[in-house]
């Protein structure tokens, strides 16, 4: 037991305590960073009010659309990078390059690219860039997010693909599978665990993403990109309503847990099957 103690203390300090503290804050009215009075679920009434549900809906659009683009893209690129072609190392470096760019730098770079007046792509937009409209702004946010996160998907998929035995693929081809059938019925099931872990990782990453959203769109225009994580940040550290911000964080935490458990159950169920 004593051997576990330092680890337990560390986990308690960096995980359990902040979660418990956020839960406590979320049921208090706060002034700046201090608790003032216990108000029960009032902060959650704000988060789960009409505006809050709109935030939740936008969060789902952002997370699901990003996943639907990033995972297939990452897998497709991993398949390409897994082939023995010339300059494969160069391709790997180029494809994985966005991974080393910070969210702030990526946001500022794309903000410039998408500027309708002086950005390099301004000819496409006629004075008003995509960030000027609600849907254009959300679409841009998703594209930039995918651009930033597909390398992670690519790396994990590539590592998984390299564990698929060549004999297994060859056997499927001998048995009459087309390359497409071989891919979907042999390779994908073999790397299913990795794919699910990837989906869990990206889901948590997207749900909690603040920097990119804050820097690229700030939640606008017309609140069209205002997602839960951004509101948690704004309420806590721009408006200093730390109680409301904590309530947003708790809702995010619950969503993370729900999705994480659901994915794990799917993974476990398939493996058991």
């Amino acid at each position: 037991m004593a051997l576990y103690l330092p680890a337990l203390v560390l986990v308690a300090l960096v995980s359990v305590f902040p979660i418990a503290y956020a839960l406590r804050l979320s049921v208090y009215r706060t002034r700046a960073l201090r608790t003032v009075e216990f108000i029960g679920w009032d902060n959650f009434a704000t988060v789960l009010g009409p505006a809050g549900w709109a935030d939740i809906a936008r969060t789902f659009v952002y997370v699901v659309a990003s996943l639907l683009l990033a995972v297939p893209l990452g897998l497709a690129l991993a398949v390409l990078l897994n082939k023995q072609v010339r300059f494969v190392r160069l391709f790997r470096v180029v494809i994985l390059l966005p991974w080393v760019v910070s969210q702030t730098v990526a946001a500022l770079l794309w903000k410039w690219l998408l500027n309708g007046q002086y950005g390099p792509l301004h000819g496409l937009f006629g004075g008003e860039g995509p960030l000027s409209s609600t849907w254009g702004s959300m679409a841009s946010l998703i594209v930039v997010n995918v651009w930033l996160s597909y390398p992670l998907a690519t790396i994990l998929c590539l590592a998984a693909l390299q564990t698929v035995p060549a004999e297994q693929i060859e056997a499927s081809r001998v048995d009459g599978c087309t390359p497409r059938q071989s891919f979907f019925q042999v390779i994908v099931p073999t790397i299913r665990s990795t794919l699910l872990i990837l989906v869990i990782m990206l889901t948590l990453l997207y749900f909690n993403m603040v920097t990119l959203v804050y820097t690229l769109t700030g939640g606008g225009p017309f609140s069209g990109t205002q997602v839960l994580s951004l509101n948690a940040f704004l309420q806590s550290f721009q408006f200093f309503k730390i109680g409301v911000g904590a309530a947003y964080s708790v809702v995010l935490f619950v969503l993370n847990i729900v999705f994480g458990v659901a994915y794990i159950r799917v993974l476990k169920g398939k493996n058991d099957g």
């Binding site: 500027n115 007046q117 008003e128 960030l131 000027s132 225009p221 017309f222």
Partner: peptide, 14 residues
Amino acid sequence: KFADAGAFGREVLT
């Protein structure tokens, strides 16, 4: 009035 007259467009939203 500035917007309606066309002195600025939706680019100011960014």
